[in-house]
Design a protein around this nucleic acid. Structure first.
Lengths: 218, 218
DNA sequence: CGCAGGTTTGACTTCACTCAATCGGCGTGG
DNA sequence: CCACGCCGATTGAGTGAAGTCAAACCTGCG
């Protein structure tokens, strides 16, 4: 996608755009980390996704943003005017294809996430989260930019459960924790196993099992 | 979207396409009802979405289908060859736009669904499900084509919980049940209220409440 | 050095799941 | 036309995983 010259620096917890605001731009993250989230009527929060450098976010069908986007740490984003992008897509079919692919890719991610939210246990959710992060990180030593609260709202858990689960993994030596934000994945096999529902089947009724695609790192 | 002449009739529980099969076609439902679902390693099932006449489904980014699509009742679908569609999108920017809009619209739906799966109670989920169905139905007297099991796998609940919740609504006169598959919505206000988390707040801590968009019927 | 935010840990509660039995409606065959 | 059987739905009892509330603990930063 074409890169314009305009970019914007944001501090920790600063808002990129807010729910309900006119969706004038599409954003591409250059550095840092961003969360897109929504407030629910009961005061809770849904973190729809975390974004890392290279990710495009803020693309909308309607005229306004349906989510709030906030910088988790100091970040830099590139701005692309929406009208410009749409004009370019009309002129050039490869741009149109890329936009379409972008939406479909986001859709696939979200389908996997919905599966996780719908049918998985806390252990499975946290393990899947760590492995997904690892797929994007340069090494197995992860630095989590987001808080336990952010993770909890993303995985549909309470922050206490996220903390407990993480420490459980550490006790089992699947991961190593150095402070709250430094996580090193030690046993990928154990984590991958934890991702699947296999561990908790009491009465062995796991016939016709079709395993999902195995996790590939980098 | 252009309508080709080819269409296909399917019986109850017949498969339109299966998970992992080559994604040669995109499908448009003409009559009946279709579910798209996935099997998980522990033997359970995730029903990603229900489709009704007019809906397009089976569009993929990759070369194969990531879901299975099955007719819930006798149905008829139109087939559109994927290559034809992509060729048309390259030639005509309005087709490209429509494809893009379709993906984004699906994305929006899924975002709402993810929110539901992540943070809502059984009562909220079932109420939201009924209201969503009602938005597409001609009247408030719904005929559910899908079983309790289908609904449960869609909402991330057990079929018993779905049944209990439905009967609870009936006891409260929010709905009327005539047999298992005939539901008439009697009190939309009650259902809408049930959708939000408001009802279960014990210690009144509901400040800064931003209500979601009110439900609009038809 | 001390404060504040974030995190961990513990005790208790609760909602939804599981297991299990029963019920009901619809289609089939006698 | 009615009896039977089957599948799906309902209902109940008991359990368990995760949520809530609450307190203590880090740790990085002013």
């Amino acid at each position: 996608l074409a890169l314009p010259g305009v970019s914007l620096a944001l501090g920790r917890n600063e808002e990129v755009f807010g729910e309900g605001e006119p969706a004038e731009f599409v954003y591409k993250l250059l550095a840092g980390a961003v969360r897109t989230c929504r407030l629910i009527s009961d005061g809770r929060r849904q973190v729809s996704a975390f974004h890392f450098p290279g990710d495009v976010f803020g693309m909308e069908l309607g005229r306004t943003h349906r989510f709030t986007a906030e910088a988790i740490v100091s970040s830099r984003v590139a701005l692309i005017r929406r009208t410009v992008l749409e004009r370019a897509a009309d002129r050039d079919e490869t741009v149109a294809r890329q936009l379409w692919a972008l939406a479909l890719h986001e859709l696939e991610d979200l389908q996997d996430h919905a599966l996780l939210l719908g049918h998985k246990t806390a252990v499975e959710r946290v393990a899947a989260f760590l492995l997904k992060l690892a797929r994007r990180a340069p090494s197995l030593a992860l630095t989590l930019p987001m808080s336990r609260h952010d993770i909890a709202d993303h995985l549909g858990l309470s922050l206490e459960t996220v903390s407990r689960t993480l420490n459980q993994f550490a006790r089992e030596d699947s991961i190593a924790l150095a402070g709250a934000r430094q996580v090193t994945l030690r046993d990928l096999t154990a984590l991958t196993t934890a991702t699947e529902g296999g561990a908790k089947c009491r009465s062995g009724r796991n016939s016709n099992v079709i395993p999902l695609s195995p996790v590939k790192l980098r």
